[in-house]
Nucleic acid binder design. Structure first.
Lengths: 187, 187
DNA sequence: TGCCAAATACCAACCGACCGGTATCTTTCA
DNA sequence: TGAAAGATACCGGTCGGTTGGTATTTGGCA
């Protein structure tokens, strides 16, 4: 990712910074706070730089979402690599990644952002298609109803974590994780 | 609800119209489409009227969300009234209401709006507190882990329905409903 | 019951702030 | 030196909200 360390300008880093700052703004203050100006200030560049890297604001947001999906995908792939049992492997990885993220980051740094994207119809379509492809790809091993329930519950937990970001503590997440993982093994 | 039919001005109806139009806009075109101007045009009044009924835009949106939660709550109460078994009654009602709504409205007319509210931190807090109170109220009968999983799965289904509003058809919702309801009865 | 002031309901016009986006110029690097 | 990277300055449009006024309704009193 890093270019030669001697160069002063590192456009790749600026691009990343813009995406990261947009993500941070979205999850901390809501999607409405993601203005071009705010993102530029947070990233320490001007609008000229932003519009040099992204054709328009929509492209920036899509960059954020794409980045998010990419991370999610590689996390799931990593979790799957450790699992010898083919049946339900994808579902187990999905559950683990989602719940571990919730436990580690105490409310998940991605949750709010992810949900933010659902508010805009265009981004919703983008996320939905990615998820559909992801599930379709593992249809051979993860198509049974009880596996679907496990994945849905993980999504629900993720939603619940979002809703209680100041409120009381999340009920035992590790127990829930074990319960859902166990659910993928029975029958 | 209706006042005397002869009167020309019926502020209660105008207030309702504003809330309804805001909700409609949000779910059809996303929360970003809910501008004060757009809501007023849809309701056939001017901005003066809107700001007479609501202190600011935030108050209008909160009105929409409050209305939504009220409907949800009364639907759940109605479903609970038909259930003789106390244990898991709330969870069963929750699952039924959520999934029936999804089945009936083919993607749910409320889903998109509900998720839209999650994008804004203030509304997120509002929704979260309502949900927490709702669960707390039924802690005596619905606090067991497998009931929590059922509710989370219902939430997940609701999220999944949102993501596939144009894509492929939802996998068998009525089967999922039966599965989750059955889950509330075992053990 | 009829009347009239006060409160309510609503409208038309307007405002400053800020939005996304562009045009143009300067700096930096290969 | 020429292309890429980024800065500065600016634009038209729209946003949430206000102002000042006009209808309509209501409640108290004769």
């Amino acid at each position: 990712m890093l270019a030669s360390p001697r160069r002063k300008k590192q456009p790749e880093l600026v691009r990343r910074a813009l995406i990261d700052c947009a993500a941070k703004l979205a999850l901390e203050q809501g999607l409405a706070a993601v203005t071009v100006q705010a993102v530029c200030e947070a990233a320490g560049v001007t609008k000229g730089a932003l519009f040099h890297h992204f054709a328009n604001k929509q492209a920036l947001i899509e960059g954020v979402v794409g980045d998010l999906m990419e991370q999610m995908g590689s996390n799931i792939d990593a979790a799957m690599a450790d699992d010898p049992e083919p049946r339900g492997r994808y579902t187990r990885a999905y559950v683990k990644v989602v719940l571990d993220d919730l436990m580690l980051n105490h409310g998940s740094q991605w949750t709010a952002l992810y949900v933010s994207t659902l508010a805009a119809p265009s981004l919703r379509r983008m996320t939905g298609e990615w998820l559909a492809r992801s599930i379709e790809r593992h249809r051979a091993t993860d198509d049974e109803p009880h596996l679907q329930v496990a994945r849905l519950a993980a999504d629900g937990a993720w939603l619940a974590a979002l809703l209680r970001d100041d409120g009381g503590p999340m009920p035992d997440l590790s127990a829930l994780r074990e319960r859902l993982v166990a659910m993928t093994r029975k029958i």
